[in-house]
Amino acid sequence: MFTRDQLDALQEIFNIAMGQGANRLARLIETFVVLSAPKLYSLKSQADPELSKRLGDTPIIATRQSFVGPLRGEVVIFFGMNGANELAELMGYSQDGGDAQRIKEELILDVTNILVGACITGLSQQLNFTKSSFSTPGLLVEGKTVAEALENQRLPQDSEALLVEIQFKIEAHAFFCELLICIANESIATVVTAVDKLLKGV
């Protein structure tokens, strides 16, 4: 488990990383993006009851994307079910035909890719790791509650996970999501070492 100091340091790292992410997102969709300061929680595993408690029992869309490199793991993002439509227009999906559901899903995957990219790239840069590579993002569940969503997933019960809660607003539309950054056990030591090195340097 991370110590208080390590968590504080990681909090700072994510502040910077997500700030960069929001900046890039704003430039991409040419709209003002407001990002709340990410809140960090350390979880013992994805099945931690804290997660269900924080996300409640409203239906969600969950996506996942893997990252490989010096950091190995997966990010699971939980989105609220609505709020995607306005974003779709900003992301250039309006003139593209096809059914609304598919567009929404593709959009959610695009946002997942951007958030995960910003988050993990930022983390790697701050910790002086070499670049990570990413897998295709995928849809994990749709229209279920967090408890239901996690029920049937074969998630390791003993791995470390960071829950990063971010909230971003695009113009008038609040878009809310939670990032669950799950770092594989073999990478945890690397992160701890890098964070400690950073703390000593301060």
Partner: peptide
């Protein structure tokens, strides 16, 4: 057009990979 252009812009501005499934 607009979707594809956005995809290219994403890679340029985010400096990150993008995917289609």
């Amino acid at each position: 057009r607009s979707w594809f252009k956005k995809k290219i812009d994403t890679v340029y501005t985010i400096q990150n990979m993008a995917f289609t499934d």
